[in-house]
């Protein structure tokens, strides 16, 4: 009886901790702070060429998340420097702007929302090879190359009063 109870407790604990770590991983994947982005060259005038990663239950979902991440990273996080490419600072520098303007950004980033109008070009369609990683049984991480209409995005946020213009106050 004692052995059965001990075994049962062990199984319960394993299941419990297993679920917790999976939940933690899923929180990490869907975190709004988890931007994996790198420059893919110097973009044409007013645009940024980047490679961005997204997570999803299917590769298609992950591609959608990647596009959303590209725009969100440009707004809140900035794009780090790469070989031959300088750093691009975040468009919105105000602390906690995502919380302060939550209504605007909820509408902006909703499925099929206006954020898509700032993606000029992407290697759409689920990628293959190293850009498509199956990280769990039903979870994918994919990387896509995206061209962001960076100047248009900045202007949109300046006009909405969320980003400060360089000549603000003068």
């Amino acid at each position: 009886m004692k052995t059965t109870t001990l075994l049962f407790t062990l199984i319960v604990m394993l299941v419990f901790f297993g679920c917790a770590s999976r939940r933690e991983r899923q929180i990490l994947y869907s975190s709004s702070y988890n931007f994996e982005i790198q420059p893919a060259g110097v973009g044409q005038d007013g645009t940024k060429a980047v490679k961005v990663w997204g997570y999803g239950r299917t590769p298609e979902d992950a591609v959608k998340a990647a596009k959303r991440n590209a725009v969100a990273a440009s707004i809140f996080h900035g794009i780090p420097a790469g070989p031959g490419v300088g750093r691009t600072p975040a468009i919105v520098t105000e602390h906690n702007a995502d919380v302060k303007y939550a209504d605007y950004f909820d509408e902006f980033f909703k499925t099929g929302g206006r954020y898509l109008s700032f993606i000029a070009l992407s290697t759409d369609g689920p990628p293959s090879g190293q850009d498509r990683l199956r990280i769990e049984r039903n979870y994918y991480k994919v990387g896509v190359n995206v061209q962001i209409m960076h100047d248009n995005l900045r202007r949109e946020l300046e006009n909405a009063g969320i980003a400060r213009r360089l000549d603000h106050g003068f």
Binding site: V42, G84, R87, T88, P89, T93, H150, R164, L166, G169
Partner: peptide, 23 residues
């Protein structure tokens, strides 16, 4: 042209920080 496009955003970001400090 690439060099200017590549570094002007970074430069303007720092200029913006200077102006914010000034205000």
């Amino acid at each position: 042209e690439e060099a200017v496009l590549s570094y002007m955003d970074e430069f303007n970001g720092r200029l913006m920080t200077h102006f914010e400090d000034m205000f």
